[in-house]
Design a protein around this nucleic acid. Sequence first.
DNA 1: AATTCATTTCAGTCTTTTCTGAAATAGCTG
DNA 2: CAGCTATTTCAGAAAAGACTGAAATGAATT
Lengths: 195, 195
Amino acid sequence: MMKLSPQIQSFVLHFGEMGSRWGISRTVGQIYALLFVSARPLCAEEMAAALGISRSNVSMSLRELQAWNLVLLKHLPDDRRDFFTTPDDVWQILRTLAEERKKREVDPTLAVLTDILSRPPGDADERFAQARMTQMHGLIGQLSGWYDDVKGLDNARLTGLLALGAKVTRLLDAAEKILPRRRARPADVVGESQS
Amino acid sequence: MMKLSPQIQSFVLHFGEMGSRWGISRTVGQIYALLFVSARPLCAEEMAAALGISRSNVSMSLRELQAWNLVLLKHLPDDRRDFFTTPDDVWQILRTLAEERKKREVDPTLAVLTDILSRPPGDADERFAQARMTQMHGLIGQLSGWYDDVKGLDNARLTGLLALGAKVTRLLDAAEKILPRRRARPADVVGESQS
DNA sequence: AATTCATTTCAGTCTTTTCTGAAATAGCTG
DNA sequence: CAGCTATTTCAGAAAAGACTGAAATGAATT
């Protein structure tokens, strides 16, 4: 069934499991993992053999990976078959993943919230519910804005940003002392309990 | 089945759908959404009625939400029933979500990678695979480190950090000019294509 | 210790998702 | 265009997951 080295097999199986925790199927996760660690592009037949799954399953899974932009189609000279790889810059992979997940999860949620909040609340319960949704909308909006701001950074700057981490706040604190800024709009901070 | 106002119903149904895209079931998503927008704590019976699902399903879903630390158990005076709410600080909810997802997804992956990379590679293919896994390990390690660094920040600082966004890099660039730092360790940047 | 009310458990059913094999499609090549 | 070879599609089978009702458990009250 699987003629993979134990190490690669562990990796592939783990990604299969993880796939289930995300929205993707076990097979899609396994195929991605396999391509990721493979030294050369693979054709569908090879993947089916390596993972012990049907040819048609590979076909469907690859289609899904392509929809996620996680996989690259290559053509070898004098070979009609389709070969596949993953992009090799892991930072780029991260960007793609973030972008796709935002598109599928964050944006629709923001849209639903915006729509609901545009309608006037009926009774007190609805007014409360809208207040809560406003908080959530504010939070997601801020995260989304931060992401848009940061997604264009190149690898070096991204690494730098991460390395800086919480140290940034020293600057913020310093700035606060010098020019005390007005607080964030109430709607965005309602329910704040820590601080 | 559902005697909820249209607005709340939209919200609840959307979270049900989203739940499926995550590792959680539709029902768990709906219950969470319902509690989130509810002005007062709800008991299991009420949730079952509002969502048109069985009492036992509510019980199991609540158990799962508790495992995620996403829900709070309350007791009302002179009432034996268990009532539930969500924490009301959305930033705290975000922290909890991040923490739990890290625990379930990131940490196990890091463990698997560490284990595999501790074994000596056999042939050239395994050497390549390990190089790839090293890249991934480096990336996840950096993200994980950043998270650990940032997770303790209070709401105000977190907001500030997000608001700053990419602007931080100006500082990084400035620092770069003044004291040109040595590049990140090769293992962490192999395969870098952008920059 | 019997009653009442709430929660949990779980075996079985139902639903949804994933996977397969066979057939259809597509694209070369002679 | 006939013959290959590779890919895609899709109806149904298989597997996984979610949900229910009934029974068990627990906890408070009389």
